[in-house]
Design a protein around this nucleic acid. Structure first.
Lengths: 197, 197
DNA sequence: GTCTATATTACGATAGAC
DNA sequence: GTCTATCGTAATATAGAC
């Protein structure tokens, strides 16, 4: 269709290389020299494709945020009982994390040192807030335990889901493993680790 | 007893300032200039107290690791049924996270760019491995659900616990809140979010 | 589109005075 | 114990040739 060969870089193909290095070394720990070595072109060539290091970060976290917010607009997030919507969003968020793993990983590690980073943090808070509202609705329906603080539980649910970026690595043809990880997250979050009694 | 006044710095008091800045800006995003501004002394004065930036990191992650490993040597981690030992270690780990919050926060964000960081990552893996063994024993006792992968569950348990550093902030005199957070973590991990059925 | 060469600034660390 | 001044290096980014 467009370009099948990959002899030269586009902003997007360069981005995939940069994000990998950012995740290995941290954004601040990555120099343009590191990127140029990883991409196999000179530092100045990188500036032909993108305006600089921060644009690479902006493109990466935008992609991650777009994927996450799209989940909230899916029918499953808007229909049915609140507890079912929470479960749906949890499941789909895990899937987006897996599909866009390096981009979401970078998003979750942003500190707030630059304008781009602060914007990313703000949008993340917005996403978190919308999921927290869903959990509140489920609690109001009486579908969540009453002996846990709902704000704390929301944080822990996010913490558990987001921790995937620290250890999940997609396997070629590992569709079964992938499904199992999604199931385990949802199961553990809503039913716990302990044997049912 | 020793020094009640705090007009001059010791390595430890300087460390507490440095760790705060490291956690705000990230270790790589923090310059000696940032540290000197935050401490209210010049860059060169910092070198009177510590050998350099990396020594501050080493002292900080050492403190965090010492606290975490000490939990594994407590009687509650060695006695009783495996599921009870897992629950005990989970509870105590959360408490150490809270007690040594800035130090553990820094530990959990280490990337591996320097020798010190790689050493910290290795010791973290060692701690994770020892808790994973406890979970395996609990599974062998039949005290964990059989429909979740035990390796995945271990990772998720860690992810949930470690996520505390991203949002928990100790309140002055907030002992009740603190206890509640510990309880919620243990409750959610082992019994889940959903209303008991 | 990629390169070499370089401008400019920021960084970690040291020297030496007080 | 703290300071000012500075060294050497590495950082982001640009200029201009091919």
């Amino acid at each position: 269709m467009t370009t099948a060969k990959r002899d030269t870089y586009t902003p997007d193909t360069l981005l995939s290389v940069a994000v990998r290095v950012f995740n290995e070394r941290g954004y601040d720990g990555t120099s343009m020299e590191h990127l140029s070595k990883a991409a196999g072109i000179s530092k100045s060539s990188i500036y032909h494709h993108v305006a600089g290091k921060e644009e690479l970060l902006r493109r990466a976290v935008s992609r991650a945020l777009d994927g996450l917010f799209a989940v909230l607009d899916e029918p499953g997030a808007a229909r049915g009982r609140a507890i079912e919507r929470v479960e749906y969003v949890t499941r789909r968020t895990v899937e987006v994390l897996m599909d866009e793993l390096p981009y979401v990983t970078l998003l979750l590690r942003v500190r707030g040192n630059t304008q781009t980073e602060r914007w990313a943090l703000e949008r993340r808070r917005e996403f978190d807030h919308r999921v927290a509202d869903l959990l509140k609705a489920a609690a109001a329906d009486g579908d969540l335990r009453t002996d846990v603080d709902i704000r704390v539980a929301t944080r822990l649910l996010f913490g558990m889901v987001n921790s995937l970026v620290e250890w999940y690595r997609p396997q070629p043809g590992g569709d079964a493993e992938r499904r199992q990880v999604v199931d385990t997250v949802v199961h553990m979050a809503f039913d716990g680790l302990r044997t049912s009694h």
